[in-house]
């Protein structure tokens, strides 16, 4: 069976790096893998999404609505935006971290409330603040790898040597903190 993983967030949050590491791990584990992303105007504060599909043989690189086994939202509201992608029996992992958009920044519209409640009512949901944990580790940027850790745990991919792939994917001086972040993430997932 082909599995579908959707990573969503806001430009600059490192969803693409997380998806890349994930992809590489899956390939080394012998899966056929396809990945898709829409490069829109991510640098300009837009919402971004990366999709990874793996299995014995994968045809489509894109995930259809209602077909994601797991949705990892790097930002709270983005989880709500992509709810139509998750399978009813799927899993949602949410980074409890808010990034304003132009319309909420200038006070025109409030940032929505009750997002976690509305999602966790429908589907199995884990939420924690990866951004805060990343700051505690010493670098806000590693939130993406913390979330990757949780995703790996949730998808039961812990047999894959992701530590090795992280070592190969990030600059040397960032290896240690990313490995720590990954392990921290593994333990955050309560399945």
């Amino acid at each position: 069976m082909t599995k579908s993983i959707k990573l969503v967030g806001v430009g600059g949050q490192g969803t693409i790096l997380a998806a890349k590491v994930l992809c590489q791990g899956l390939i080394e584990a012998g899966y056929d893998v396809k990945m898709s992303e829409i490069h829109g105007m991510s640098q300009r504060g837009g919402s971004v999404s990366s999709e990874v599909r793996y299995g014995k043989k994968v045809y489509s690189p894109v995930i259809e609505k209602g077909n994601a086994d797991i949705l990892v939202a790097f930002e709270l509201m983005e989880a709500a935006r992509y709810m139509d992608y998750i399978k009813p029996e799927g899993v949602v992992i949410i980074n409890n971290h808010k990034i304003n958009s132009m319309v909420t920044l200038n006070g025109k519209v409030p940032y929505p409330t009750g997002i976690y409640e509305s999602i966790s009512e429908k589907v199995k949901t884990t939420m924690f603040n990866a951004s805060e944990l990343a700051v505690e580790l010493g670098n806000p940027k590693v939130a993406n790898i913390i979330l990757l850790g949780s995703l790996v745990k949730a998808m039961e991919l812990t047999d894959i040597d992701f530590e090795k792939i992280i070592r190969e994917s990030v600059k040397e001086k960032f290896v240690d903190i990313n490995v720590k972040a990954f392990k921290l993430g593994l333990n955050q997932y309560q399945g």
Partner: peptide
């Protein structure tokens, strides 16, 4: 598929 609840999202225009 689930519906996206309109009151739970606001746009992120570039």
């Amino acid at each position: 598929s689930f519906e996206v609840e309109a009151d739970k999202v606001v746009n992120r225009p570039p």
